[in-house]
Amino acid sequence: MAVIRARGLTKRYGERTVVDGIDLDVQRGECFGLLGPNGAGKTTTLRMLLGLTLPTAGELEVLGHPVSTAARAMRTRVGVVPQVDALDPEFSVRENLETWASYFGLDGVVAGRVNELLDFAGLAGRADAPVVDLSGGMKRRLMLARALINDPDLVVLDEPTTGLDPQARQHIWRRLRQLRADGVTLILTTHYMEEAERLCDRLSIIDGGRVVADGVPRELVEARIEPFVVELRGPAGRCWGRETGVSLAERSEDAGDTLLLYARDERPLLEALSGRRDVDYHDRRANLEDVFLQLTGHELRD
C-alpha cells in the first residue's frame, strides 16, 4: 500500500511556481529521500504532505487520507522532525516529551512511552535537564524522540543531520535504520549525498519544482555516471586534464577550481598520471553527488 501518493502536486505563490507538478509514490516501510538544491521546492513539498499549506493543484493522499480534507486525522499517525530544533526552552527533556504528547491527546497514558523514548534517544540520564543545557546533537535526538511519541506510521524529517558532528550523525542514522527495520516509513530531505546513499531505498531529485530523476540511489549512479572519477585540482591539474586527461576519459566537467574526468576504465588515466608529481588529483568511485551535480549544475542557488 502506498503511504504517500501524489499526482501533479503543484504550489504557486502568485506568479511564482514553487512546486510544479510532482508525482510521488512512497511505499510502506521504505526510506524515501527528497533531494534538491536550496529553493528546489523540497520544504514546500513536505509542508503540503503534512497539510500545512494547501496545494494549488494536484491530488495528494497520505496514509490513505486525502490531505485536503483530513490533515488532522492524518497527522495523528505522523511524526515530524522539522529543520530547526523547536523545543520548549522553559521545559526539561521529559516535560518536552509530555507536553508534545498532550497535543496528541495522549496525556496520562504516556509515562512508559516517554521512558522508552528517553532510552531510544540516549537521554535517560538527562530526563530532568532543561533543554537549554543540551548540546546540538542531544537536541536533535530529542526532536527525533518527540516525533515518535505517537508511535507514527510515517516520519517526515527535514534535514535531520544538518549541523551535527559525525558521532551525532551516526547515532541518528542508526536510529533511522532501526525505525525502518520496525516497519516505519521514512521520508527525508537532505543536502548530504552520502546520507541519502546510506539511508534511502529510493529517492527523487527535484529542481525548479520538478522531479528531474528518481529511483534507487545505486541504480541512478550506474545509469547516469561512468563508474570512475578523477578529480584534478589547481592550475597544473586542470591544465593536464584539458590537454591530456580528456582524451582518456568519456566525459569531463569543469567545477571551478577542479576538473572532473568521468571514465568507464580508470587505468589509462592513472597510468598517465603516475609520473606527474606536480598534478594534484584524487580518484574515486562515482557517487550520488555526481548525479546530483550533473542534473542540477554547479552554480550557487542562493
Partner: peptide
C-alpha cells in the same frame, strides 16, 4: 522567537 506555534502545527493541532 520560539516557533512554538509552527511546531505545534506538526501535531494534530491547527
Amino acid at each position: 522567537e520560539q516557533q512554538t506555534w509552527t511546531t505545534m502545527l506538526n501535531a494534530p493541532l491547527n
